[in-house]
């Protein structure tokens, strides 16, 4: 007897859970032959707001973890993704990719996670400094996570673009809300399932599907968002984001890299969403024998 295949409902990923959009809206995702592949949540500004609340709640704990622990968790995401490779390849093909490229994209995504897992407890050493000062202080600067980061994922890929933006941000101890590619949203929510089973605490990564044109002004004006990473190419949106960001002096980064290249991964992506804290630590007078610290 033939059976009816059970299809997956693609929902959002907010606060470690998979809610439907509060708006109840959806949009059909079509393949090349105009067949409906899936109905995808059309996320609203309130979904984004809820995600910011979840993210803010998760920030202290995530940012306060040891770098070593964050590294382990990023590696764990890679492990989980590796095990579910075939599912992601299938989704990329469904959304119009060819088989060979799909396999390459998923494998590169896994490798990228491992890459940033390695950097978790090392970038601080690259970007920190001991500063010479003309008083009896030991003066040093260290990077610290900026806080809640909003991400607009690149439109032209389903997985690699999203992973390339999320990984360095959380590796640095930030929390984020990512808006998935509108044209290719399937992998984003499946990636949420990977995150949910990778010891990533609830709220550290939140993923929303929907229209960039509808959400971008709210993402860029929200005063509890500390930075925005924009992976798109629309000049009008870039201008709007930069203007709105002035409201609370949000940091804005526009990335237009080709994420399929290994050159598009480096610790400077982690550094972008870090703040530098400089500390003046009183010491004895610096004498001929050097500082006594």
């Amino acid at each position: 007897m033939s059976r009816i295949e059970i299809l997956k409902t693609y929902k959002l990923y907010i606060g470690g859970q998979f809610p439907r959009t509060e708006s109840g809206r959806y949009y059909p995702l079509l393949d090349k032959k105009k067949n409906v592949i899936a109905d995808v949540c059309l996320g609203s500004r309130k979904d984004f707001r809820n995600a910011v609340v979840s993210a803010r709640g998760a920030f202290n704990s995530w940012g306060g973890r040891t770098a070593y622990n964050r590294s382990q968790i990023l590696y764990r995401i890679a492990e989980m993704l590796e095990k579910r490779k075939s599912e992601f390849i299938e989704e990329i093909i469904l959304q119009g990719g060819n088989k060979a490229d799909a396999k390459k994209e998923v494998e590169l995504s896994i490798d990228r996670l491992v890459y940033y897992a390695g950097w978790c407890d090392k970038f601080q050493q690259i970007f920190s400094s001991v500063n010479p000062v003309a008083s009896s202080h030991f003066n040093f600067s260290v990077p610290e996570p900026t806080g809640v980061v909003a991400i607009v994922a690149p439109q032209d890929s389903s997985l690699i673009g999203l992973v390339s933006l999320i990984a360095p941000i959380i590796a640095g101890g930030n929390v984020c809300i990512a808006l998935a590619s509108e044209k290719m949203p399937l992998c984003s929510i499946t990636f949420g399932e990977v995150l949910a089973t990778s010891d990533v605490p609830a709220g550290v990564v939140n993923i929303i599907t929907g229209k960039t044109s509808e959400l971008i002004s709210h993402m860029s004006s929200h005063k509890d968002v500390n930075a925005l990473v924009y992976g798109g190419k629309d000049q009008k949106e870039i201008k709007l984001v930069k203007e709105n960001a002035t409201l609370n002096v949000k940091r804005v980064f526009v990335y237009q890299n080709n994420w399929n290249k290994t050159e598009s991964q480096n610790p400077y992506f982690i550094f972008d969403t870090q703040e530098i804290k400089t500390t003046w630590h009183p010491i004895e007078n610096i004498g001929v024998g050097g500082a006594k610290y």
Binding site: V52, R56, H222, K223, D224, L247, N248
Partner: peptide, 8 residues
């Protein structure tokens, strides 16, 4: 018209 943050 803008969502607020605790910092303010």
């Amino acid at each position: 018209g803008v969502y607020q943050g605790g910092d303010y």
